[in-house]
Write a protein that binds this DNA or RNA. Structure first.
Lengths: 151, 151
DNA sequence: CCTAATTGTTAGTGGAGCATACAATCGGGC
DNA sequence: GCCCGATTGTATGCTCCACTAACAATTAGG
């Protein structure tokens, strides 16, 4: 091997041993997806997490904060800050649950539903960009393997 | 469907439509990996990024900051903060490159090499935890697909 | 030689994750 | 029915990561 700095950037992936680490590739893939997401969503000013929360609340009206956190792998404090932000922007509202007064029931506002609808359109493009790298079978396999990691 | 809150958390993945979004699974998998990483690395007090940088510098002594950033998908500012931290902790040092005075050449210190060696051991466990979900063929396929995303 | 591009640096902003502590509420055992 | 532990939400404060914008030094090319 060349002693040092034989890497004037002609190839893009001079990763060395690091290329064998699965977790490393997951992190890089996540960063790449995150970057593309924010680029295609600059006009909406919503993050992945925020859209996920809106989506989940839309699918499960009256869901509690803790349940949102569990499904999205966030602790209570993190969920709080995101819900706070979305509430400040008028996208969702809290109501104390009638069945369990400890819980907050979350609902989308009309504005929240509108924002989510727009976001879903953008996510369509985003997903197309992502899926263009794979056959439908590969997509299925990839999702299944990723689910094995986060479940 | 039940009108609201039929979700008392008996199943873990009541994700609804969200389950069809590839980017969403990547994010969840990343969070799960990140969490496990930090748990097994609490004694070392190094983050994934920091270890990646140490590893990369070890593989490519004299590498420039910009090259590190390119390979790890970070911009210059982010690379700066990480290199600063590692330098403050005495794990690497900067030298102005002789061939191009704009560049900083990065080298690990003895302490940095020791820290990296320890980190690699922990990463071994971490990777084993991750790979235990898959056959060797699946690991290969997964890495290959992730690389298609971040390249 | 002058201009444009590259690299590093600084400063500031915001999102996200985590730990801790506290209050309100619920549930089960007695 | 009452107390105690568990659950849920809330507030505070910290760290890390990613980004932008500006600026200085250096290099490369016309």
């Amino acid at each position: 091997m060349a002693p040092a700095t034989a890497l004037t950037g002609d190839k893009d992936s001079e990763l060395g041993e690091l290329a064998d680490i699965v977790g490393f590739h997951i992190r890089l893939a996540h960063v790449a997806v995150y970057r593309h997401f924010t680029e295609t969503f600059c006009d909406l000013d919503l993050t992945q997490k925020q859209v996920s929360v809106l989506w989940l609340v839309d699918d499960h009206p009256g869901i509690s904060q803790i349940a949102v956190g569990q499904r999205l792998q966030m602790d209570r404090a993190t969920t709080m800050t995101i819900v706070n932000r979305l509430q400040e922007r008028g996208y969702l509202r809290r109501e104390r649950s009638t069945s369990d007064a400890r819980k907050q029931a979350l609902y989308l506002t009309t504005e929240g539903r509108a924002a989510l609808a727009t976001a879903k359109g953008c996510i369509g493009e985003h997903e197309a960009w992502l899926k263009s790298r794979f056959t439908p079978d590969e997509v299925k396999k990839l999702v299944e393997m990723l689910a094995r990691i986060h479940d």
